[in-house]
């Protein structure tokens, strides 16, 4: 089994951001996540792709693991790494494989 690329320390950080946004029933709606991602100052088309890759069940909302994927991609993008066109297997949360 491939370990998830989101490290436990990062996951804890992302989880605390997730909780601070007031998830309802353990999920965040798009309108709650959007301003956070926009805060990164990344281009909207990049953020749109980040959303596509992280909303794995395409319900327009992110659960904790999906949110971690989104944050991971945003942080990597801010470090200058390109956002992939499709989600590499190591980035898929173990709970969703």
């Amino acid at each position: 089994d491939t370990p998830w690329v989101v490290k436990p320390e990062e996951k804890m950080k992302f989880d605390s951001i997730f909780e601070s946004l007031g998830p309802a029933g353990g999920i965040l709606t798009g309108d709650k996540v959007k301003p956070v991602l926009l805060n990164s100052k990344l281009p909207v088309d990049i953020l749109g792709r980040v959303w596509e890759l992280s909303d794995l069940d395409r319900d327009g909302m992110l659960d904790k693991d999906e949110f971690s994927v989104a944050m991971y991609l945003v942080y990597r993008a801010l470090e200058g790494e390109p956002v992939p066109m499709s989600l590499p297997p190591p980035l898929v949360p173990p709970s969703k494989r």
Partner: peptide
């Protein structure tokens, strides 16, 4: 897989 264009589940589109 999913319809392209006007994906209502993506708040950035």
């Amino acid at each position: 897989q999913y319809p392209t264009g006007g994906s209502s589940t993506n708040p950035f589109l």
